[in-house]
Each structure stands twice: as structure tokens, then as C-alpha cells.
Design a binder for these strands. Structure first.
Lengths: 226, 226
DNA sequence: GTCTATAATACGATAGAC
DNA sequence: GTCTATCGTATTATAGAC
């Protein structure tokens, strides 16, 4: 009975504290050392707790990482939900992405997703946790996209759920890219700014042109291959 | 004199053979085990050579990985150059990307870039090599994009070099995403197909609408923020 | 060049005292 | 719950025989 962790509600605050330390320590270790050098020992060291507690509280290192993934995603998303709610255009969404990119590079939490994504390629437990963590993001992005694109041909001819997933995956890819080539990543992001400006210009083309686009799309088979 | 590897030209074919085995073994290990479990021993095992040869030929594991990155990128790009040269539209480019995605997931070489990207976040030597390997791809994509977008407003208002970098990073992100959520990744890719179809429809809008878009973009400040 | 053997360190995980 | 101590294994890297 007393040799196992109790349920969340029944846990003592001291135990909950070390659990939190380990979760935060896991995230910090992932960003600072990378998945390759993230171990029970390195995590415990940055968390400031005993190494054996990793196994007592989480069983295995991968299970700790899986829990940390959810913890970090929820925490980070909560910090950005308000800002995302205020988004009213594609350009604003990209601006928030820019902001997220800048602040995360300093604090480093999205980089965690990159590391877990890499680790998840070969470890099913991590894969499931990472997919779940990413889903928290894509669901949020999807809500924003649906609101922003309402009434535009984009929402009509493009699967917004898929678009949100694509945007999220692309963002993580760009985040990883920035880690190895900051100048290149900045140039990539700048080109997306220009692309958003172009999209904004198209949005304001007027009903005549939009009707032309719609009929063109219908003829070529909507929602089909290019 | 005889205790050190000689220059590439002067190397014996036997030595060159083990070097190649190690390079290929490194790529295979990265895809099959991930960066976290890629070690001198695991690489040597899949390569079928002695573990000590990793250090004799490449000095450190990271240096081997860096060399393997270049080796794999050059090899893979050579296999796709012809196909990329034949691309004449955005839709065709996406179709090649789809093809690449499918064949690489089976043979697994782009996944290598994801693993190295993750490792490069914290290891400068890997970062430089990965950036260089990615540049081989972005340069190629840039050439294709420049040809495909010639005459379109896209080439006029968007930095094509940056766009090529963004597309490459996004592709790697999607590739990693596919590793943890195949269904989600498929949906994401499908939405990009729809997006490409929409872009194709816009391309054929005619000179009147395109003039309208151009003047609109100029007024809002070309190449500027959204 | 390639091998064996080995040094020094780090790893995951567990047992048992407190 | 948390600690120390420890087992068995895997790691990087080198020395030296061949």
C-alpha cells in the first residue's frame, strides 16, 4: 500500500512537489541537453531531487517524459490561449507564431516537442504521448483557423483540421531548423510573412474574383489533388 | 604516419569500404534506433565492423554522424534530382514531395535529418553538419521554386530562397509528425494538396485580377510584415 | 587497418534503511 | 516518500597485438 504512488487527489503536497520538480526538470533537461543526453540521472540533477525518485514516481524514464510532454503542453498552451483568442486574421496568427517562436527560444518549450518527436520515432510510448501533446496545440490552432477563415474560400475548399495539423508540424520543423541555422530560419519566417501579406491581399479581392476562384475550383474537382 | 587515416584519394579501397559501411550503418541506426540510442557500438553492429574503427576513421561518434549527414543528403538528392528537374508546377512539386515522403518512410533517409536536427540543438558539431545537409536540399528546392513560380506574383513578392528553406523545414517537421501520428500526418498532407489546388486556381485568374493583387500589395508595402 | 582487451564513466533499475 | 548503496550493463575512448 505505502510502497506505491497514490492517486493524484490523495497525494501529499510534498510528493506532489517532487513530482512537479521532476516534470519541470525533464522539460529543462530536454531543451538543454537534448533527448540523447536526457537520463534519469541528468533529469534528477537539474530537478534537484534524488535519482531513485524518477522510478518511484514514474516507473521508467520514458513514462516521465510522456507525462512531462502533457504537462508542458498544457502549461504552455494556457499561457497563450488568451492571445490566440484575440487573433482575427491570418497575419495576426503568424504574428503570434512569431512571438511564440521568440519567447520559446528563450524559455525553450516547443523545442521539447521537437526532441520528443525525434524520440517518438522509435519508442511507441513516447510517440503516443507526443502525438497527444501535439493534439492539444493543433486543436487550439484549428479553432483559431476556423474563426479566422470563416467565409473565405480557404475554409470552403481546404480541410481546416488538416491545415492546423500541417501548420503545427511545420512550426516544430522550423523551430528545430532555427536551432541549427538561425539565419536561415529567420529568412524562412520572413518569407512566410510575405506569403501572409499576399494571402491578405487575396482575401480583399472582392466577390467577383472570389466567385471566379470558386467556379474554377469546382470544375477542377474540389478538395482534390492539385 | 601509418596510425592515421590518409587523405581520401590515397585511401585503400578496403579502408574506403569500411568507411562507407560505417556511414551507411550510421544512417540505418539513426532511422531504426533514433538519435538517443545511436552509439559507436550500435552503429558498428549494424555496419558489421569492429567498434574501435568508428574512432579510428572518424575520431568521435558525432563526427561520424556529421559525415553521414552529408553522405546521406548527397546520395538521396542525386536519386531525386531528375524528378525535381521535371517539375513544372506547384502541384507537381507537392506530388514529388508526396512521393519522397512515401519512399523515404519505407527506406527512411529524411527521418535521419529529423534525428540530426534534434541532436544538433545541443551539439554544435552536429548542428553545422545538419545545416549543411539541409542546405543541399533547400538549394535544390529553391531552383525548382524559382522555375515554377517564374512570372507569378509569388516570385515577385516573396523571397523564394526563404520559401525554399521554410518548405524544407516544414517537410522535415511533417516527416517527424508522421512518425508519431500517421493518420494526422496524412490529413495534414491532404490539406496541403487542397491548398496547392487553390493556388493553381489563383494562378489562372487572369491579368486583371493579378494587377489588382499587385497594386494592393504595393499599397500595403511590398515584402513587408502582414 | 583491423583486431582484442581494457580503463573510466554513465546508465536503468532495485533493495533496503530511514 | 526519500535516501544510500549497489548490481549488471552499456557507453566513449585508448593501448597494444597482429
Amino acid at each position: 500500500m505505502s510502497g506505491e504512488p497514490r492517486s493524484r487527489a490523495a497525494r501529499s503536497s510534498a510528493a506532489e512537489d517532487t513530482r512537479t520538480k521532476l516534470l519541470a526538470g525533464a522539460l529543462a533537461t530536454l531543451t538543454e541537453q537534448g533527448i540523447a543526453k536526457t537520463s534519469a540521472r541528468s533529469i534528477a540533477a537539474t530537478a534537484g531531487v534524488n535519482q531513485a525518485l524518477v522510478f518511484y514516481h514514474f516507473g521508467t524514464v520514458d513514462d516521465l517524459l510522456a507525462a512531462a510532454c502533457r504537462y508542458g503542453a498544457e502549461q504552455r498552451l494556457a499561457a497563450y490561449r488568451e492571445r490566440l483568442d484575440a487573433v482575427r486574421s491570418l497575419g495576426e496568427l503568424l504574428a503570434v507564431a512569431r512571438e511564440l517562436n521568440a519567447s520559446e527560444r528563450a524559455g525553450g518549450q516547443v523545442a521539447v516537442l521537437g526532441q520528443l518527436l525525434a524520440g517518438g520515432q522509435t519508442q511507441p510510448r513516447l510517440a503516443a504521448a507526443t502525438a497527444a501533446g501535439l493534439t492539444l496545440w493543433t486543436d487550439e490552432i484549428e479553432r483559431v483557423l476556423a474563426r479566422v477563415l470563416a467565409g473565405s474560400p480557404l475554409a470552403e475548399f481546404v480541410d481546416v483540421t488538416g491545415l492546423a495539423k500541417a501548420a503545427s508540424a511545420a512550426f516544430v520543423g522550423l523551430e528545430l531548423y532555427e536551432g541549427v541555422d538561425p539565419a536561415g530560419a529567420e529568412r524562412a519566417l520572413a518569407s512566410l510573412d510575405q506569403l501572409a501579406a499576399l494571402a491578405a491581399a487575396l482575401e480583399g479581392l472582392g466577390p467577383v474574383a472570389q466567385r471566379a476562384v470558386r467556379s474554377r475550383l469546382r470544375r477542377s474537382g474540389s478538395r482534390g489533388r492539385a
